[in-house]
Design a binder for these strands. Structure first.
Lengths: 218, 218
DNA sequence: ATATAATATTTTGTATACAATATTATATAA
DNA sequence: TTATATAATATTGTATACAAAATATTATAT
């Protein structure tokens, strides 16, 4: 007696709509047309509503009473906040990795930048961009902290909607990355933490200054 | 022509149910009885569903497919994660306060522990418990970082469901608090950050060790 | 008395209906 | 033409209905 226990429709639709937001099919500020979605996904209003409301709870969608639901637009203020959070979270995550993980696990963190030295040509630049992402991703992953992992997913989405490429040039960040790696190799957890926090707060500062340039008050 | 634009029912119900969770009227692990709630709040299923689903998005409620919705039970693993997050967030928050806030604002942070010295009698102990909470609350508040502020609300709720009173005795924490305050007074932002992170990670360690005592593997 | 099967009850997941409100289009007046 | 009022249309917020699944209850056999 086989019984196909189909995943609840609401969850399926939730996943699909979330993906649409994360990959940009639904753009920040855009109003969500429920009817359109019900037709597109050929389900009734109910699961679409469910999905949208759940995403409202997650903060990716915003409700305007009696007007509708809109893909959240993140402000510079939000970005600043995100960077501060990320700095703290990732800093502590790295510190705990260094303190609690065995050597062979830590090795996975320490080789991302071995083959880079300044200046970078165009090809190396692309590789560096990737190494940068993978390095930070690896820290998140090794933390095995679900809050950090989830936060990071949304952070990536938000960053993409603001800025393509690097916030600061490799001339600044490569030495920082190398210093962080060195601290990890030395198992100096506090220093690794401190340097990583510094690293992210410097990017936060760039964001902040960019904002000030266009917005005189505050 | 006055038109009372009443707040959407869904939002009202959302607020009420969230409050019930936060103040313990709905207890961790408890199954949510929708019918009961509809009667209790005299609304139809729909706004109750909305509220529950939104809270699922926020992580306070958990869905078990075709079984129902349950108030989330946080595990020791979760607690450990929370403490790590809190350490990082609050550490960076304090650091940025020290760097960016004017003296008269910082003064609001530096007087919580002036009148305490060890050992504490029973009355002082109670006052200390309060000062401790208010100190950390103040840091959160001054950060004006909405993510930290929201995280903290949930954190408080979770902590309450695990532990009443202090995790570590004043003999340990009062000197730490005083050292943090001193760094703030000296406007040594990095040191303040470092000490505050340390402070929270020590509490995390207590949680972790408590867990190990009862649970041999992992 | 306990375990298993059969049945009744409750609850979930989903669809649909509909009044209140918001939006758009159209007509009228300045 | 431009601005305002009115009507037409679409969309939201809410209630309700109902099949499928889960749970509780009862009956039956060991």
């Amino acid at each position: 007696m086989q019984k196909i226990k189909k995943d609840a429709l609401g969850n399926l639709v939730y996943g699909k709509i979330k993906l649409m937001i994360l990959n940009g099919a639904l753009k920040p500020g855009q109003k969500i047309n429920k009817k359109e979605l019900t037709e597109q996904l050929s389900v009734s209003q109910t699961p679409v509503n469910e999905a949208i409301i759940r995403l409202t709870g997650e903060g990716l969608i915003e409700q305007q009473e009696r007007k509708g639901f809109f893909i959240k637009i993140f402000t510079y203020q939000d970005l600043k906040e995100f960077f501060a959070i990320r700095a703290g979270m990732e800093g502590v995550a790295l510190r705990l990795c260094v303190e609690e993980q065995p050597d062979n696990t830590l090795d996975k963190l320490t080789h991302f930048f071995d083959n880079f030295s300044l200046p970078l040509d165009e090809n190396e630049y692309k590789k560096y961009l990737k190494a940068d992402q993978e390095f930070h991703q690896k820290i998140i992953e090794l933390s095995r902290n679900s809050i950090i992992i989830n936060f990071n997913k949304n952070f990536d989405f938000i960053m993409k909607s603001y800025q393509k490429g690097l916030i600061r040039p490799p001339e600044e960040t490569l030495p920082e990355h190398k210093a962080i790696v060195k601290a990890v190799r030395n198992r100096d957890s506090e220093k690794a933490q401190q340097l990583l926090i510094e690293h992210h707060l410097k990017s936060r500062k760039v964001i902040k200054d960019q904002h000030l340039k266009y917005n005189t008050n505050n």
